[in-house]
Design a protein around this nucleic acid. Structure first.
Length: 445
RNA sequence: CGGGGCGUAGCGCAGCCUGGUAGCGCGGCGGUUUUGGGAACCGUAGGUCGUAGGUUCGAAUCCUAUCGCCCCGACCA
């Protein structure tokens, strides 16, 4: 993309309503614009990041064997009356009435709808196990939306639901989700720690939340410092292997890690003192096993091999996709702006032309731009007639992890400069080598 | 929902207390000189002062109501 053809309304000054880094930077970098309290338009740059996160979630879900579909944002109140949650959910649910005076709601989650789909189409144990998921906008009428997309009222969430014949099968699904979530966050360059959590309105005894450590996090967390050393890495995993998934769960949940909801001082005291940590975290996902809580009242049953009709065991699992954009920035920024991890960056590399209009630099930039694109990379070429400082400031603000600087001074010696946004380190090399180097950086992702 | 605060040009703000021609910086547009870390100068456009009532000769300013937004708390992916 050429910046002159793009829509990137960056702000030099910080809008007064933004208090935390991610909110400030998303507004300044032209990623979002507020439409109402807790409701945002996603401008091109923000939309691009959102889509990249969404894609990673899709890929990892499908790698784990989960099946995508798409349910609507508006749901009929009748289904929620059936489950008993229409009255239980409270003021957070946005209720709407249509012209025929029928009660609708903007879905805050989809247990009822998915259970309805399941029960009308599945009747046999032979159809199990099954995990369906979608990535769809949700609405929860928060009392007090804040922190930009971190606590919006409208937010994009991946929510998935597993249907299994037995509790054991459903717990495998639970473990499988934990593993796939570890992979998902790691691909985005985020360390998200699974912590024992509270069931909340969705309910269930088995539940873990995934927390990204950040000063601006809304939850207080307590953990054994050993847990932050764990990484999933590029190990191979067979998601159908019950033992493997179980082993990963045990590896990642055996150490103390809890939010304030479930924190237990007595148990925490058993962790060696030098490893005890108290911090703040951003919740970016949660997994539940809740048994037959919805299948029983809603009649989601299958017939077993023995001819018996039984309610299915279910669980649900969520990843806050739009919140992740904010969480990623909280975890990756400095005083100059955002620093995107390679896995989610909106553009792979920025090209800064220091002397727009100069024949040699223009030609070198064009060659770089086309060369990078030819390798399937997505560069952002700053071809505006701005001064060097303004171009650098924009690049730093929007946080592309790599920048190629092209100026007459370097070109005289046949070199351009490749700079890491994270470390600030620059290296001079020929344009051809710069293309190869950038290609190499992204080859594994 | 309790407490606090704010709505004045695209953004950041002053003016309000003490009523009398609506301002500043950034940004935009045109021009000149510049050009390796948000350039300088000149010119220029842009505002029913959130909205509705009221008081007054006169309201951004005082009064009332209302809408919106932000912050702290309780609640939450």
């Amino acid at each position: 993309m050429r910046l002159s053809n793009y829509f990137l309304p960056v702000l030099k000054e910080t809008p007064s309503e933004a208090q935390i880094a991610s909110h400030r930077l998303m507004l300044r970098a032209g990623m979002i614009r507020q439409a109402a309290a807790g409701i945002y338009s996603w401008l091109p740059l923000g939309f691009k990041v959102l889509r990249r996160i969404e894609n990673i979630v899709h890929e990892e879900q499908q790698r784990a064997g989960h099946v995508p579909l798409l349910m609507p944002t508006l749901q009929s109140a009748d289904l929620w009356r059936e489950s008993g949650r229409y009255d239980d959910y409270g003021e957070e649910m946005l209720r709407i009435r249509d012209r025929h005076k029928r009660d609708l709601l903007y879905g805050p989650t989809n247990e009822e709808l998915i259970t309805d789909i399941f029960r009308s189409a599945v009747g046999s144990y032979k159809d199990l196990p099954l995990t369906l998921y979608h990535i769809q906008w949700k609405f929860r009428d928060e009392i007090r939306p804040r922190f930009g997309v971190m606590r919006g009222r409208e937010f994009l969430m991946k929510d998935g639901y597993n249907f299994d014949l037995t509790k054991e099968d459903a717990l495998h699904a639970y473990n499988r989700h934990l593993v796939s979530y570890l992979r998902t966050y790691e691909r985005m360059g985020l360390k998200a720690i699974p912590m024992r959590a509270d069931g909340g309105p969705i309910g269930g005894d088995y539940t873990h939340e995934f927390l990204v450590l950040a000063e601006t996090g809304e939850s207080e967390v307590f953990y054994d410092s050993e847990i932050t050393d764990l990484t999933f890495g590029d190990r191979e995993i067979d998601y159908t292997d019950v033992g493997q998934c179980q082993a990963v769960l045990e590896e990642f949940t055996s150490r103390y890690a809890r939010t304030d909801e479930t924190h237990d001082e007595a148990v925490f005291a058993e962790v060696p003192e030098e490893r005890r940590r108290t911090a703040r975290g951003i919740e970016v996902g949660q997994i539940f096993y809740f048994g037959t809580k919805y299948s029983e009242p809603m009649g989601a049953t299958v017939v077993t091999a023995g001819g018996e009709r039984v309610p299915v065991h279910m669980g649900s699992h969520g990843i806050g996709v739009s919140r992740l954009v904010g969480a990623l920035i909280e975890a990756n920024h400095d005083e100059r702006g955002i620093i995107w991890p390679e896995g989610v960056t909106p553009f792979h590399v920025g090209i800064v032309n220091l002397k727009q209009g100069d024949e040699a630099t223009d030609a070198a930039c064009e060659a770089l731009y086309k060369g990078l694109q030819a390798l399937g990379l997505d560069p952002l070429y700053d071809d505006r007639s701005e001064r060097a400082g303004a171009k650098f400031a924009t690049m730093d603000l929007i946080g592309l992890p790599w920048r190629i600087t092209v100026g007459p001074r370097g070109l005289k010696n046949g070199v351009v400069e490749l700079t890491s946004r994270r470390t600030g380190e620059s290296e001079e090399m020929s344009p051809e080598d710069a293309i190869l180097k950038v290609n190499g950086i992204y080859a594994g992702l």
